[in-house]
Computed example of a mutant assay.
Amino acid sequence: MSESNSLIKLGIVGCGEHSHEHFKAAIEVQGVKIIACCDIQDVRARSCAEQYGCDRYYTVLEEMLEEEKLDGVILCTWPIQHLQQIELCLKKGIKNILCEKSLTLSSKEATAIGKLVQQNDAFLMEGCKYLHHPAIHKLERILSYGDIGKIDSIRATFSNYEPEEAADNKEDWRYCKDCGGGVAYDWMSYLVNACNHFSGSSPKRVFASGTQSKQYEVFTRIFGMIEYENGVVAFIESSKEANFSEELQITCTNGILRLPIAWGIFGETKITQTHRKPDWDYILTDSYEIEESNAFALQLKNFTAVIQGLEQPRLPLHQSIQNVRLIEAMVTSCLEGRIIEF
């Protein structure tokens, strides 16, 4: 901890559009302050520092790490940069890192990160904000009660119609293959995480099919199936050529749980549980209202609580490494047209 045990001082790397959610979360969470920010573009770093009250801003990460006394760092950067940035943070003595998804673009790099974190006795949590939302906690509680029965299958979707010709592709990293563009390491990372999280098991085999942009070589559509060791089967759908969908559905022996918007929940939401009335071909529906919550703030609360030794991380690093392995397997399945065994 820094000089005052009542304040956790953080630095943030990457001051693009997404970083604003982390800045706002730090304002909402008591006992936390982002005191320094860094971006390779001076104008963006300066703008965020002025808007959110950072003490200083930088354009070189190493300088920020050397000059600031930080309790942790938030990496709000491209997946291709994460390994190098994590290695530098650890080298400079940073023990706590919140790293935006996806952790990396390969299982080799993900494994390397795991080893580095372990060797430096550090803590790293991947930023997967949806996991911290009360709606996900409610799903977990309903499943834990046991009345709905055993999970049979999981269906997770994240799609939105975003045609290539309508985007500023030269400036958008989501169309840059080297940066992790396309659906695989962006939208689909939520889906893979949710399926792994709720299945309660390790993947056994996967198969996926999709569409790869001829111009940008990124996947704009992926449809996959995951079979887990415990028999649970998961279906994943992510497309930039389909109507908007962010649904999570969990089908059990005695009912079906649905969360209509699962990954970016803004405002109130509702979980529905459908089940058949005994001895009748009649479907009953129970609803659970979920209050509005800031998932980014809840994520930051968990991150800082782990730093203080008060909580366990909602997303342990070994699960993030498993997520990358599974995404990589699905991409390989798409490219080679075959089932990938684990």
Rank of each mutant, 00 (worst) to 15 (best):
L248G: 02
Q273L: 14
E162W: 12
N230S: 04
Y228V: 10
E247Q: 15
Q215E: 14
Y175I: 00
F198N: 01
Y190Q: 08
T251Y: 12
S238E: 05
F223R: 09
F235R: 05
L257E: 01
T211K: 04
G264I: 14
G182H: 03
G210D: 08
E246M: 06
T251N: 05
K240I: 02
T274D: 14
C176Y: 09
S213I: 08
I250L: 09
M188E: 05
D186K: 09
E227A: 05
H197A: 08
A234P: 07
I271K: 01
A167D: 04
Y190E: 03
E171C: 11
G181R: 00
V206W: 00
S201D: 07
W173A: 08
G224C: 02
I256R: 06
K270F: 13
E237P: 04
S201K: 02
F207T: 07
S199H: 02
I271S: 00
F223D: 13
G200E: 06
G267V: 02
A194Q: 00
E162D: 13
N254M: 10
T274W: 06
N193K: 04
G264C: 15
M188V: 10
Y185W: 11
C252S: 09
D172F: 08
P163M: 10
F244R: 11
E171P: 02
Q249L: 14
S245T: 04
F235S: 05
S199T: 06
G182T: 07
W187Y: 15
T211M: 10
D178P: 04
S213T: 08
Q215K: 15
L259K: 01
A234R: 01
G231D: 07
E246C: 09
K214R: 13
H197V: 09
T274C: 06
C176H: 14
V192W: 00
E268G: 04
K270I: 12
N196E: 12
K270P: 09
R258N: 12
D186T: 12
G210L: 07
V192E: 00
A167S: 13
G210R: 00
F223H: 11
T274P: 00
E217S: 15
K240F: 12
Q212E: 15
Y216E: 10
N230H: 07
L248S: 02
T253C: 05
K177W: 06
K240Y: 12
K214F: 10
D168T: 13
I271F: 03
T220V: 14
C195H: 01
G210H: 01
E227S: 07
V183H: 04
A166I: 11
E241S: 07
G264P: 06
E246Y: 07
G224Y: 05
I256H: 07
Q249D: 11
G180Y: 02
W263A: 02
Q212R: 12
P260I: 03
W187L: 15
G264Y: 15
Y216M: 04
G180N: 04
D168C: 15
T220H: 04
A234E: 01
S201M: 04
I222D: 01
K170C: 13
S202A: 11
I236D: 01
E165K: 09
E162M: 13
Q215Y: 11
A208Q: 06
S202E: 15
P163W: 08
F266R: 14
P278C: 10
E171L: 14
E165C: 14
F207W: 08
G264M: 13
T211W: 10
E246D: 08
S213D: 11
G267D: 05
M188R: 05
G224I: 01
Q212H: 11
R205N: 11
N169W: 12
D186A: 14
T274E: 13
A194T: 05
